[in-house]
Design a protein around this nucleic acid. Structure first.
Lengths: 130, 130
DNA sequence: CTTGACCTTCCAGTAACTGGAAGCACTATC
DNA sequence: GATAGTGCTTCCAGTTACTGGAAGGTCAAG
């Protein structure tokens, strides 16, 4: 099938699929006219990639996961290790955002937000409040 | 003062400060030798930028905030609007990460993580579990 | 006068796409 | 067969916010 159909089935933009081929994540065949020809397996791999990316795995992690996915002799421990490491990164990102959120929220609630120039948000950012 | 001292006082790498000048966030003076010469105000602005960036504001938001900071006739409402919009983005990012975390965590806990090839993480990513 | 630390600019690379231009291929219609 | 419209191709550039490194000028100490 052509790229637009593969894109629809995988839930990815055609542009992204071309990019994935460019970096060697997938290697669809080619028709006589030079068009990419996607097999069911290609689409399957694209869906796999779409899900992995939506869980926040980096491209390189996706590459590793896809390799493990194709390797029927894999050890599930290898997969789990990657996933756990990623989970830790998600957790630290959440913690970082929560910390930002707390500070920002405090500043916002202290600000009148009217036509007057006095602004605790700015003075907070300027470091005058500590 | 020279850039390394300004960097120390602002808590930013010298590279970053040069970058900020390049994109017009700050405009330190220059000595006869061509070295940048940072005033107290420059350092103050750098610290402001460092704090704003650490709260996750984008460079363009920082630019706007810095402009408002310099404008003594500002309306605090303008500042608050920027901050609130940013807070919303933080919240949606947190929500997204939490959703990822939940899914990933489920997959991980279902995986034995040993030498065997069976892996719920991979089958989950492949979409076979739904 | 040389050494070492510090400064300068400029170029390239990062992550993961995304937009757009120029040009060939296919399908349908007139 | 000409034409129009859609889809495909490649290639180049831009995005965000830096970061690393090279080549070379400057300064303070000994």
């Amino acid at each position: 099938m052509n790229i637009s159909q593969a894109a629809t089935r995988a839930g990815l933009p055609a542009k992204t699929i071309r990019y994935y081929e460019e970096i060697g994540l997938i290697t669809p065949g080619r028709g006589a006219n030079g068009y990419r020809d996607f097999s069911q397996t290609d689409v399957h791999n694209l869906r796999f990639l779409a899900r992995a990316r939506s869980l926040g795995f980096t491209i390189e992690e996706c590459r590793a996961l896809l390799t493990l996915y194709a390797d029927k002799g894999r050890a599930s421990g290898d997969v789990k290790r990657i996933a756990q490491k990623h989970l830790e990164q998600i957790d630290s990102k959440i913690a970082e955002l929560r910390s930002m959120r707390a500070t920002l929220s405090d500043l916002i609630s202290a600000c009148a937000g009217d036509h007057r120039p006095d602004c605790p948000i700015l003075t907070g950012l300027a470091g005058e409040s500590r």
